[in-house]
Amino acid sequence: MKLHTGRPEQCSICLKRFCRKSHLKEHMRRHTDEKPYLCTECGNGFNQRSHLVEHIKTHSSERPFQCEFCEKGFKQASALKSHILIHLDKKPFKCSRCPYACRQRYSLRQHMLQHETDESKQSKIHSCEWCDLTFSTLALLSSHCTNDHGLLDKTNVVTDDFEEK
């Protein structure tokens, strides 16, 4: 009924709401980085018991999830599901900004970081008003103007033989 009547539990940090106190407590571990579930094999910590259960499988040699196409084995069902996409030639994760597509959400997230990097570089481009070359820093632009156009800065002409465009 709590699902239908509202979510009374609220995170004091990000204001996300939950229908159960246990879900809020689990959520708070993300903010505090508390990892109470420890792997006895390697010592890695997890904020959810289910994550530890999945992790423990990585220490086993068992590969119970078999590919129906090539019979390759996997420790986790999610890895098999991702692998099958290779055989089906499907790339369900598509970039909204370019034609890039991939099989895993993580790969798309990594790809999207490149767009953010490109955008930040574009916002820092300095263009030469004389020849339209672009530079990532004002210092490089000034150096270019001095060396290539004989200017002390990008607006003052130093030599008489410089022809404006």
Rank of each mutant, 00 (worst) to 15 (best):
E129W: 00
F135S: 05
E116P: 01
S127T: 09
L85F: 06
F65V: 01
H31N: 05
L108V: 04
P36F: 07
K94L: 08
G73T: 06
Q76I: 04
D118Q: 12
S61A: 11
H31C: 08
T117E: 11
S123E: 13
L24C: 06
H115R: 08
R105A: 12
I56F: 02
K121L: 13
S82D: 11
D132A: 09
T134M: 06
C70F: 10
H87W: 09
Q48R: 15
C131G: 06
I56V: 14
T32E: 02
S82L: 14
K90I: 13
E116Q: 10
Q104S: 05
I125C: 02
L52Y: 04
K90W: 03
P99T: 05
T137H: 10
C39A: 02
G73Y: 05
H126L: 05
I86T: 12
K72A: 12
F69W: 14
K91R: 15
L108E: 01
S61H: 09
Q76W: 02
H126P: 01
K25T: 11
S50C: 13
C42A: 08
H51T: 06
F93E: 11
K75P: 01
Q110R: 15
C70A: 12
S82P: 03
R109M: 06
E34P: 12
E119P: 00
L38W: 05
E71W: 03
Q122L: 10
D33Q: 13
F69K: 03
L108Q: 04
H87F: 11
E41F: 15
H51V: 00
P99S: 14
G73N: 06
L88V: 08
R29Y: 07
K25D: 13
T134Q: 12
T32S: 14
S120K: 15
Y100M: 02
S123H: 08
E34C: 04
S60D: 08
D33G: 07
R30Q: 12
Q66D: 02
P99A: 07
L24W: 04
A77Q: 14
E129F: 08
K91H: 11
R97F: 10
R63M: 14
E71T: 12
A79Y: 12
P92D: 00
K25M: 04
I84T: 14
N47M: 08
H31Y: 07
D33H: 15
Q114L: 13
L24S: 01
R97G: 00
E62G: 01
E54Y: 09
I56C: 02
K124S: 15
A77T: 03
E54V: 03
D118V: 11
H59G: 02
H31E: 02
I56M: 09
L85N: 04
H83K: 14
Q104I: 03
C128T: 06
E34S: 11
K72E: 11
F46I: 01
Y100H: 06
Q122Y: 02
K57Q: 15
I56N: 06
H111A: 03
N44V: 04
R97S: 06
C95A: 10
T137M: 07
G45A: 08
S123W: 00
K94R: 13
